[in-house]
Amino acid sequence: MTHLDTLRRSGEATVYAVVAVLGVIAAVVGAGYGMFGEGGRIGPGFLPVVTGILTAILCGAVAFGIVRRAVHHEPEPSIEQVPDIDITGRSERQRVVNLWVVFGLTFVAILLVQLVGFLVAFGLLVLVVSAVVERQPVLRSLAITVVAVAVVYLLFGLFLGVPLPGGLLGLGTEG
């Protein structure tokens, strides 16, 4: 088993284990809402408790199964093998970095909405991702960004009348 496989297995087991723990927490909190009401009828806590317990049991069982297969060096059917180098010549490590950079940029774009408005914030996201992260020609990236912002403005802002926030710049469709 490679180091990468070990990492993936532990990641998968961790995801299921975390969900199992969340199930337990939901069941405990849900019990506080009252499982049964008047005359033994179902109360607001019934479904959270039942589904919380089931989630904990099922996800716990899956996590346990993954760990057991890892200990016995059995293959994990759910893990897809991916090539180390893709068609653009990026290694897996570079791709992982890019992925979290895009997540981070999206997070920043959402935070920027209140400041510069929806269209500008997400227009900048498209531009930065195309030109910087993906290293595409700046002019082409700029052209794509302008077209994308214009289409979104026309379709959502004008045609559907969605009040897109304009931020401090006032470049939106609200009001």
């Binding site: 999206t106 997400f122 996201l125 991702v129 994308a148 897109l164």
Partner: peptide, 14 residues
């Protein structure tokens, strides 16, 4: 590389 930033944009605006 051009398609996915647009998918992100339209997903969030949608």
């Amino acid at each position: 590389v051009y398609l996915y930033p647009l998918i992100l944009f339209t997903s969030f605006v949608g």
